[in-house]
Structure formats: C-alpha cells, structure tokens
C-alpha cells in the first residue's frame, strides 16, 4: 500500500512527471480545440492536510466548476478537474471565439461546452498516464457540477481520506495570450492502483 505521507522525493518526482505529461497532453488538446498556442507552467504537485483542502481554490464557499469521471481496467480510480469560475469563463469564451467577459451569465450551451472541455482535458490527462505506464484504462462519461469549492473538493478528499489524512493533487496553469487559466487535477487511484502505476513505471518493485 502506498501511503501519501510516506512517499519519498523520488516517488513524488514520478507523480509530478505523470502530472506534467498528463497536463501537457491536456494543453495540446486544448490548443487544438482553440486553434491557439497554449503554454503551461510546470505543474506543481501539492500534498496537503485534509482540513485545508476546501480552501485550495481561494475559499471553501467560492463557486467552482468540477468535472469528474471514474475509470477501471488495469488500474481503478477517479479524476477530478476543478477550476474557478473566472478560469472557466475565460476558457468558454475562448472556445466560443468571443472576447472574454467574466460577468456574462453562463447559459446551457456554455455549460455543455465546459463539460465537453472537461471531458477532453480529463481524458487526455488519463490517456497520457495509460500510455506512459502501458496500462489499460477505461474512463466513464464525465459529469459536471458547479458548486462550493469545499463541496466539490470533498469528493477527492473523501477518496484520499479512506487511506490517509493527506491529499495529493496537481496544479497546472495554462497560459493563452494575456489570460492565465488555472486548472487543478486530482488523480485518485485506488489503493492498489498506486502500486500498479508505480510498478508499471519501474519506480517500485
């Protein structure tokens, strides 16, 4: 069993690299969709106490957008993509080819677009992991929710909470022109799948 508290710096580097490749793949998918060049910062792997998790996105009560899917196959688990409302707005307006206006209320088409965006980002993220570790992974159809950050983030927190008092997640920043869009990926393999991934990558025996 892999305990998040007990990960050594090498294992954290590997997880960061997975995050890097996953997010890189997602950035490429985003760039294709927008027909624009999308840069990104090196993702940051963060390990945090459970009780601080709800405040990650600038306050537990802040409305955020979450896209969640689970997966099965050689490894099982879930992926959650979370972004704040402003970031979601910027991405939607870019997709629709409109000037960015974060005050405009979102309509059904916008929500459908952001769900599709979440679909593509999470799938490409997961796909990168599967390819890298040569594992067979079958994702479910993603589901969208807009609600308080604390409530959305409680989903991965509970999953981590089954085995640990810490949560591991990957923060990625996409940059397009003057706009910075911050996206958080929570990859939660189930307990055995952590071992499977690290083994498949040759990190542990």
């Amino acid at each position: 069993m892999v305990d998040i508290d007990g990960l050594n710096s090498f294992e954290i580097d590997v997880l960061r690299e997975i995050g890097n490749i996953g997010a890189g793949n997602a950035a490429t998918a985003l760039a294709k969709m927008l027909s624009k060049k999308v840069n990104m910062h090196v993702p940051e792997v963060r390990i945090m106490d459970l009780k601080n998790v709800p405040d990650v996105l600038g306050g537990a009560e802040q409305p955020v957008m979450g896209v969640y899917l689970d997966f099965e196959g050689d490894v099982e688990g879930s992926v959650l993509l979370v972004m704040d409302e402003t970031s979601a707005h910027i991405l939607i307006d870019m997709m629709m080819g409109r000037p960015v206006d974060t005050n405009r209320p979102l309509n059904d088409i916008d929500l459908s677009a952001v769900q599709e965006l979440g679909n593509i980002l999470t799938s490409s993220y997961l796909g990168a992991l599967a390819t890298l570790a040569k594992l067979n992974v079958r994702p479910s159809i993603p589901c969208l929710a807009i609600d308080m950050a604390g409530a959305i983030l409680s989903v991965p927190a509970v999953e981590f909470g089954m085995t640990s008092d810490k949560v591991l997640f990957i923060e990625t920043e996409f940059i397009e022109g003057a706009d910075n869009v911050r996206v958080y990926f929570f990859l939660v393999p189930d307990v055995d799948s952590y071992d499977t991934i690290l083994k498949a990558l040759g990190v542990i025996q």
Binding site: Y68, D70, E72
Partner: peptide, 18 residues
C-alpha cells in the same frame, strides 16, 4: 449530498453515494 452522478460508472463506485 451526492455531488456527481455518473451514468456509466464501473458500478463499484461506492464513493459517489458516500
């Protein structure tokens, strides 16, 4: 609450109805 409802989940996702 149940924050996410997946349509074709692997079926053994006990987390979502926690």
């Amino acid at each position: 609450a149940q924050m996410f409802a997946l349509k074709n989940s692997s079926g053994n996702n006990d987390i979502l109805n926690i």
